[in-house]
């Protein structure tokens, strides 16, 4: 009886502030708030994910919203109010959806079909764009290749070599490499970051200017 009373009292028509949302999403959970949040997540997810989903977008988005809601409820204590609650919840939902899509994408597709993404600043999922070999390869070029190979072989750990090879040389997408190496995205990023730093520092020690090197290639 008391529980029922408490539950009834928690129901509100709208949730304006973070405090109201947090109160409503903490146990005992206010189902009305959950329903409202679900609607909002679905409204945001549809336009955000439609280009990745070729069929049954509605069903997919509803499933993602549901999984995200469970995470939101489980982690509500970790929300510190640095943004609107909806922004935080949407962030969780978007990652949920894209993670799901990536798993599907790379389960169905063979490695040869994967499309590289070319962005010059990108260093993580670095892919090899247009593999053309210039006709007048300079004499120095093979020396440079040798130098970099030596650095890779001598300075990097086996795991770092494996990651660099998969991501940068074979140009495999991050989710595929994560699976191959039985790791997670964050750990892979850090592994590659350490490797990049080692190469950078070694070039510096050897007095090799990366810009000069790039000009020669």
């Amino acid at each position: 009886m008391l529980n029922w009373f408490k539950r009834r009292r928690k129901e509100k028509a709208s949730y304006e502030t973070n405090e109201e949302w947090i109160e409503a999403l903490k146990p005992p959970v206010d189902e009305r708030a959950v329903k409202l949040l679900r609607q909002q997540l679905i409204r945001g997810l549809k336009p955000a994910l439609h280009k990745y989903v070729d069929r049954e977008l509605d069903q997919f988005v509803e499933d993602v919203a549901q999984d995200a809601l469970l995470k939101v409820l489980d982690n509500i204590d970790s929300f510190r109010g640095e943004s609107k609650l909806l922004t935080w919840a949407m962030k969780i939902a978007v990652r949920e959806g894209l993670t799901e899509l990536r798993l599907k994408r790379y389960d169905d597709i063979s490695i040869e079909d994967l499309k590289p993404d070319d962005d010059s600043r990108e260093v993580f999922s670095l892919t090899v764009a247009g593999n053309e070999i210039s006709p007048d390869r300079s004499l120095h070029e093979s020396d440079l290749v040798d130098k970099v190979m030596t650095i890779i072989n001598e300075e990097l750990t086996d795991k770092q070599k494996q990651a660099i090879n998969a991501l940068m040389i074979q140009g495999l997408p991050v989710p595929v490499v994560v699976k191959q190496m039985d790791t997670n995205r964050n750990a892979l990023y850090k592994l590659v970051h350490d490797a990049r730093l080692k190469i950078k520092n070694k070039l510096e020690i050897e007095g090799i200017d990366p810009d000069e090197m790039l000009n020669k290639l």
């Binding site: 090899v128 070999i133 970099v148 090879n165 940068m168 970051h193 190469i199 070039l203 990366p210 810009d211």
Partner: peptide, 29 residues
Amino acid sequence: MELTPDILKSLIKSAQMAADHEIGCDECF
């Protein structure tokens, strides 16, 4: 592992851009 000039370029660029302190995907999230 075989390095073509293009791969080598990407590799050098990515090393060149390495900052001592970079955050990972979790901290970014």
